[in-house]
Nucleic acid binder design. Structure first.
Lengths: 232, 232
DNA sequence: TGACGCACTTGACATCCGTCAAGAGGACTT
DNA sequence: AAGTCCTCTTGACGGATGTCAAGTGCGTCA
């Protein structure tokens, strides 16, 4: 783990909120490993023995329904932690995790965390902050699915990816479109069509590059209740 | 607060996990109050100053989209706590809360909680457990919306309400159908129709009483991927 | 260079669900 | 007992999204 990794770790809600020496103790001799694309980190129902920090790449969390369909619950990237709350949830992961892009992850044993918390209770406060952060993300996701159309959900997704808030920009999609679709609660075909519907709003897509003429236009589109465009 | 209330408080994931004397200290001189149906407890964006324990009645948490639509994020009943994680989330509630049935609530100041946590770090562990519980509930809700049809979602809702796992039973719906619909991410009309579709599966509805001939049949229906019934 | 695989797009069609509208049935008031 | 309000139900319709299927374009590999 080099200084750059350390910087990433410190940028997470979990490790950023705790004193430096405590963070050092926690991740001291934990392992950084490279995981190939497609690796299953854990399955829902497995005993929750450790949690992760993403140093590079992307990881998806999902649930499998009895008939085999998968519902993506979250996609995590550099600077995010996941599964840390599961450590306290009856010891079982409520979701499955899979690496979707060859990734470097820092893995931290739950037992270590629990032990440290007893010695250094402030860690628990950091964990609460982190947990609250995830709660909020989930709440926002539910709101999104329930009240936005497919094109609006993608527009929102693009806006969050956008480094600027006005004017235009070009961004690269972080991972496969099929996964984006899953994350947004729709099928790949719908994603295609929805992106096509955004064309009149100044969105053009070329492979994984998306260019946006006017971000503010998108923002207003997401906030509009009438779901069609008029006069085009 | 009478012994019965105390028993309810101790049944929550949050207060059940901590030593009795600590729990007593926390809720010692906090107020139990009766709130009329329709009371707004807080709005999303408000400073998060306190959290609640439901002693009686029902409370809904929801988010308002820019255009005024509401997305129900959770409905809480006796023996559940809510908004406790918000205390740690930058001091703002990410959702709004409204009493949907005249209710008795125990309100606990966030400041008190924070102070006690510093003195008694085990509380933080209880809060983590509680927070994880809510995380899991949200994850399950997302899975539900993404992968189940409207009739399947209601079936699941009924199963969770059911005291038994096999045979039949009759249950009373806990609150208005319109709210149930919101909780399940659909419109009241769709709820009606979905309930009608469950009739061939042994569900009959009379006002707020729902009788189920065979719970197991429902369970299997939820776990089925083909969404129509065959041969009826 | 050509064949294959994979991700994505596009089209046609079916279905689910939301919307708008009307109507049924209680509960409460007068 | 009639009137009114409210919740819930039912019907008709349209739009959005899933499904199935075919087609395109790029990358890989021989």
């Amino acid at each position: 783990m080099d200084p750059h990794d350390w910087h990433i770790v410190r940028s997470t809600p979990l490790f950023g909120a705790m004193p430096q020496d405590v963070a050092l103790l926690l991740i001291g001799n934990q392992t950084v490993r490279i995981y190939e694309k497609g690796t299953a980190l854990f399955q829902q129902g497995d005993p929750a023995e450790s949690f992760f920090v993403v140093l590079d790449g992307w990881v998806k969390l999902f649930r499998l329904t009895p008939d085999g369909t998968e519902a993506v619950v979250g996609v995590f990237r550099r600077g995010e932690t996941f599964a840390e709350a599961a450590i306290f949830l009856g010891g079982r992961y409520p979701v499955s995790a899979e690496v979707v892009t060859t990734a470097r992850l820092l893995r931290i044993e739950g037992e270590v965390l629990r032990r440290r918390i007893r010695e250094q209770p402030d860690i628990a406060l950091s964990m609460l902050a982190s947990s609250s952060y995830h709660l909020k993300a989930l709440v926002e996701q539910i709101e999104q699915i329930k009240s936005l159309s497919a094109p609006q959900r993608i527009a929102d997704f693009l806006i969050r990816l956008c480094p600027v808030r006005e004017g235009g920009c070009t961004i690269g999609l972080p991972y496969e479109k099929a996964l984006i679709a899953g994350r947004l609660g729709m099928k790949p075909e719908s994603l295609s069509r929805a992106l096509a519907k955004l064309r009149p709003l100044g969105i053009s897509v070329d492979r994984e590059q998306v260019s946006i003429v006017d971000v503010d236009l998108l923002v207003r589109f997401v906030e509009t209740s009438d779901r069609g465009e008029e006069g085009f």
